[in-house]
Structures are given as structure tokens and as C-alpha cells.
Design a protein around this nucleic acid. Structure first.
Length: 291
DNA sequence: CCATGAGGACAGAGCTGTCG
DNA sequence: CGACAGCTCTGTCCTCATGG
């Protein structure tokens, strides 16, 4: 078998070197991406992905949950990868044929299946950070299904990184992964988290990794700015500056990065409040983000 | 189908220049 | 000045990702 693999490797090498071809390698399970330094400090991450009955966070249900623990060092290098755990769950309603087509999962695959909550919570609770691609989608489903881990810090590999800046085009997981030279069968939770791990481990020109960037970004608090009691005539200025109207709470608000907060405070005091009233700056950490 | 943000298309307001 | 064309700026709406 090695004879065949060697010949394939040679073919891949020849094609890689040719300017008119590009070689895509299939993702294979790994136990680590980098050599571990036993004396260096490390942290635990959990890659997570859910397949659901649809897009509605309130009405739809998880039908497949995959988690995979990994250990990473201070430079964002993944030095250990755990065994993936995957559970299916019977949603008790027939699947939309579209979902079966997308995920390959059928009613029969799910019949009588359920998530092992104790095991899932145990893994997720051990995480210093939970990473998902489009966490704003996964998190509400997971928080609702496993409320015990609802306060954990989450990071989103899709929204929190400036992929264009990192030299990528688009932000779909499969597309990003393919730009790193890999391919896999997507839309199955277990494959998607493996792809996510490969992506996170991808090296950058500065010597760091995608994961290092993501963790750094995720640890920075952002702010939810509520322009409570802003005078009515400031509404156009607030709107122009990207604030949105919360009809229920009746104030303008926006989210800003940590580095923008001082300038925002100054602007609000000078251009909105003019000495009367006070905006509220609510810090948002990874524990609250993407909910 | 939901939510969110970004970018593009288009319409309307308003300013300016030209001509009689 | 009045009528009108054309340019710019702004606001609104639409479409396009992205997750299932």
C-alpha cells in the first residue's frame, strides 16, 4: 500500500509544482498539529458544530452535535487533538427533505437517538474557549439544549476574523479550508469540526496561526453602547454613526470594539448629550458574545 | 424559511451652471 | 431671474453571503 501512496505523493508533488494545477489534500484525522513543549503552558479549546432541523433558533432543533477537544500553546499552535465525539438526536418531527439532502441524515438515522448530555457538558465545561464557525448560529442552539454550559466563552472563526486581511476570499468553511489546500465532505458535524481544526492550525506569515489571531481577538472585550435618553434631535446623527433603534427598549445602540470606546464616549458627550445625560457602555466578553 | 452586516442600485433633494 | 439639465450626496431598499 505504501508503494501506491508513494506514487500518489510523487504525482501530487509534480502537479503541485506545475503552475496550471493545484493539489487539494483530503483531511485526515490527526492527534496534533505541532510538537508539544511539555514545560510550556497550554489551554483547552473545544471545536463544536451542530446540524439542526433548520435555521430558526427558537423553533428548530439540534439533530447532530459534534465536539472535539484540543490543547493549544501561547502561540496558538494546536499541540494535542482529542477524540471527536458525535451525538445524534431525534427531533420527534420528520426532517425537511432539504435537510436530509444537506446533511445526509434521515429520519431513520435519528430515530431513538439522543445527545449524551452528561458527556457533552463534561467536555464543553472543560474548555477555556469554545470555537464554532458562525457561532451566532450554533450558540443559541447549544445554550438552549445544554443550559449547564451557557456561560462559557465562545469564539467565532467566521465573524471575528478579517479573512480578507488574512489573505482569504469568502468565509464559508469549506471555501477557506480549500484555500489552504484541503478538501473534505462537509455538512456533517464531525467533518466540519475536523476542518475547523485544520483551519485554526493554519500558519500565517507572521509565524502565528489563525487560532492565535482568533483567541487574541476573542479575549478583547467589545462594548454594547446604549445611547439611553439621547435627545430626539440626535437621532439622525446616531443613525449616521451606525446606531440602531431598539424599538422595545426605546433607545439607539451599537456594538463597538475595545479600541473605539474612548472616541465613542467623547463623540457621544459632545455630539449627542451636550452635557445632559449619560450613555451606558456594557462590556461584552466572549462569555456573552454570539448569543 | 431567521439574523446580521456589507455593498450595490436607485430615487429624491439640493446645489450649480447655462441659456435666454 | 426663471427654467432646466446635470452632478453629488444621502437615504432607502435590495441582494448577497453565512450558518442548518
Amino acid at each position: 500500500m505504501n508503494v501506491i501512496n508513494d506514487r500518489h505523493s510523487q504525482a501530487a508533488e509534480i502537479l503541485s509544482a506545475h503552475p496550471d494545477f493545484r493539489v487539494q489534500r483530503r483531511l485526515v484525522p490527526v492527534t496534533a498539529f505541532h510538537e508539544a513543549d511539555p514545560y510550556a503552558p497550554s489551554r483547552v479549546g473545544v471545536a463544536i458544530d451542530v446540524e439542526t432541523t433548520g435555521l430558526d433558533r427558537d423553533a428548530d432543533r439540534i439533530i447532530e452535535l459534534a465536539v472535539q477537544r484540543f490543547r493549544f500553546d501561547v502561540r496558538g499552535r494546536i499541540i494535542q487533538v482529542g477524540v471527536p465525539r458525535v451525538w445524534r438526536e431525534d427531533p420527534a418531527i420528520p426532517l425537511d427533505p432539504k435537510i436530509t439532502k444537506l446533511t445526509g441524515l434521515t429520519d431513520d438515522d435519528l430515530a431513538g437517538q439522543f445527545i449524551d448530555e452528561v458527556a457533552a457538558v463534561d467536555i464543553l465545561a472543560s474548555a477555556d474557549i469554545i470555537v464554532a464557525h458562525n457561532a451566532a448560529f450554533d450558540r443559541p442552539f447549544v445554550d438552549r439544549r445544554l443550559p449547564a454550559i451557557a456561560g462559557k466563552p465562545w469564539a467565532c472563526s467566521m465573524a471575528e476574523l478579517d479573512w480578507l486581511e488574512l489573505g482569504f476570499e469568502g468565509r464559508a468553511l469549506a471555501h477557506l479550508v480549500s484555500q489552504c489546500g484541503w478538501f473534505y465532505e462537509g455538512h456533517r458535524a464531525e467533518n466540519d469540526i475536523l476542518a475547523l481544526l485544520y483551519l485554526l492550525s493554519h500558519g500565517l506569515p507572521d509565524g502565528g496561526t489563525i487560532l492565535a489571531k482568533l483567541v487574541a481577538c476573542s479575549e478583547q472585550p467589545t462594548f454594547r453602547v446604549n445611547a439611553v435618553d439621547a435627545p430626539f434631535d440626535a437621532k439622525d446623527r446616531l443613525k449616521a454613526r451606525g446606531y440602531r433603534w431598539d424599538a422595545a427598549m426605546r433607545f439607539w445602540w451599537k456594538s463597538i470594539g475595545h479600541e473605539e470606546s474612548d472616541a465613542e464616549r467623547v463623540w457621544l458627550h459632545s455630539d449627542v448629550y451636550a452635557g445632559y445625560g449619560e450613555p451606558s457602555f456594557i462590556p461584552v466578553t466572549a462569555c456573552e458574545r454570539h448569543r
